[in-house]
Design a protein around this nucleic acid. Structure first.
Lengths: 204, 204
DNA sequence: CATTATATACAGCCACGACTGTATGTATCT
DNA sequence: AGATACATACAGTCGTGGCTGTATATAATG
């Protein structure tokens, strides 16, 4: 059966895709590697060959999507001293929402990370990494707000650093509520307007 | 050994307290009822007498703390047409943070609900209830913002309803980040100032 | 270039422990 | 005596990790 290196990589990707799917459906802890194998139309042997155990699989899945999002966010000129820093902030936030709405992989991954995973034991380390990349993003936000302040775009009496962490909190909560609101009752229809309001309040 | 009804109720409370503790330590799914029993210095028989299974125990634990928080929040005059509606909003939000910092039971419960639980299967229903009570709180926020608008306290061009859901998102995110920030590195020291900033931006 | 040796990439089996739910035993209260 | 409030014993299920088997790719060798 075994063929080329490309096939091996394809198998690995199959496993990652299947894991994301099953994790999102059944939650991480309730998912057995047998179930992942079945979804990938492989055996547990294949999974154990590519990943040492469930956490390594989980981490790999997470990092892959994180890289995707990182690229996506990089498109917005967050942190750079552009003409309209607040516009960059807005674009950056909107990009997250766009990822949630358009990309199923992103949606599933966020769903797992926020609602279908218990951050305990080995998983606690994953939490630290999430916080870490969130910090990096916050630093960029701070820069953009500082630039906005220098350019007189910012409302008086506001601290760029505080604005950044406030924005981060808002977005964390927005994503969580967006995911919780599966019935599209209250959060999802208003998400875009919320972001506009969020940024508008910062304007001078 | 166990005689009066008060003793029975005490046993029940012991179980709930032990469950909260162990859930927070090991996560809900990794916690066996045997471990809860051990922490409560009882046997599994006692747990199965008071609760049908793990979910019922979990739900009971959650509802108890939710009631506590509900009372606590009721103290602030949120939704009422008071002299300073924005102050009521601020007080209400601060009360949450105060609960997190002062009451270990609240802290543990939020920790479980936000970071140590997978909302899958039977637990998905719990999520719906959380969203529900969050909606109720959002309605009160909307009222307060509307009152603020009528009293000219609100900045021009803002929609009370949008402000309310934006606030809700902010708080959800704040609580989550506060819990994630166990090293008290970035979030916790700035939490209070963030809330002040959050409300200040709404002021006319 | 053909053959051989070895590493790779899985599939399948098995032993073990952990947890659940229930059934039964028992002491205390009413 | 009956109901209550537990403790204990038991059976059944499920997941893990390790081990074995094996077919194929890749590298070494002559």
């Amino acid at each position: 059966m075994r063929r080329t290196k490309a096939d091996t990589e394809k198998t690995r990707q199959q496993i990652l895709d299947a894991a994301r799917k099953v994790f999102a459906e059944r939650g991480v802890s309730r998912t057995s590697l047998e179930q992942v194998a079945e979804a990938a139309r492989l055996s547990r042997g294949a999974i154990y060959w590519h990943f040492a155990n469930k956490i390594e699989l989980f981490s790999a899945m997470r990092e892959q999507v994180a890289m995707d999002m990182f690229e996506r966010m990089g498109a917005a000129q967050l942190g750079e001293d552009v003409e309209d820093p607040l516009g960059a902030v807005r674009d950056s936030i909107l990009e997250i929402l766009r990822g949630l709405e358009s990309d199923e992989r992103v949606r599933e991954a966020f769903d797992i990370l926020i609602l279908k995973c218990e951050y305990v034991g080995e998983f606690a380390e994953v939490l630290a990494r999430i916080l870490q990349s969130a910090d990096a993003w916050t630093d960029k936000l701070t820069l953009s707000y500082a630039h906005a302040q220098r350019r007189g775009q910012l409302r008086a009496g506001l601290n760029p650093q505080l604005l950044a962490v406030e924005s981060r909190s808002f977005i964390f909560g927005l994503v969580r509520l967006w995911l919780m609101d599966v019935g599209s009752a209250t959060v999802r229809p208003q998400a875009w307007d919320m972001i506009d309001t969020h940024v508008a309040m910062r304007r001078a």
